[in-house]
Computed example of a mutant assay.
Amino acid sequence: MSDYDNAIFRLATAQEAEPEDYTGEDGLLYCGNCRQPKEAYFTEGKSLFGRDRHPKECDCQRKRREKQEAADREQKHREEVARLKRKGFTNPAMLEWTFENDNGKCPQMDKALFYAANWEEMRAENIGYLLWGKVGTGKSYFAGCIANALMEREISVCMTNFALILNDLAASYKGRNEYIDRLCRFPLLILDDFGMERGTEYGLEQVYNVVDSRYRSRKPLIVTTNLTLEELQHPEDTAHARIYDRLLEMCCPVFFTGENIRKSTAQGKMERLKGLMNRKESL
Rank of each mutant, 00 (worst) to 15 (best):
Q68N: 15
Q75W: 04
A112C: 02
E120P: 02
K85Q: 01
I180G: 06
G27P: 02
F186P: 05
I222P: 07
K67V: 14
L204I: 13
I261T: 06
F162A: 12
G195F: 08
I165N: 10
E249C: 11
Q68S: 14
C58I: 11
R86K: 11
K46G: 01
L28Y: 04
V135L: 12
E20N: 12
R198H: 12
G133V: 11
P235K: 05
T43D: 13
Q15C: 12
E271W: 00
K38V: 01
V157D: 06
F42P: 13
E154Q: 15
T224L: 04
E39C: 09
R51H: 13
I155L: 15
G50M: 03
G50W: 00
G32Q: 06
D110W: 05
L150A: 03
T265D: 01
R73L: 03
Y202E: 15
K134Y: 04
Y179V: 11
N33W: 01
F114W: 07
K38F: 05
D192A: 07
N226I: 08
R35D: 15
T13A: 13
C58F: 06
L29P: 08
K76H: 02
R78E: 09
N226R: 06
N6Y: 15
I222S: 00
E121F: 04
A147C: 13
A170M: 13
G203L: 07
A163I: 13
K134L: 13
R65C: 02
I261N: 06
N101E: 02
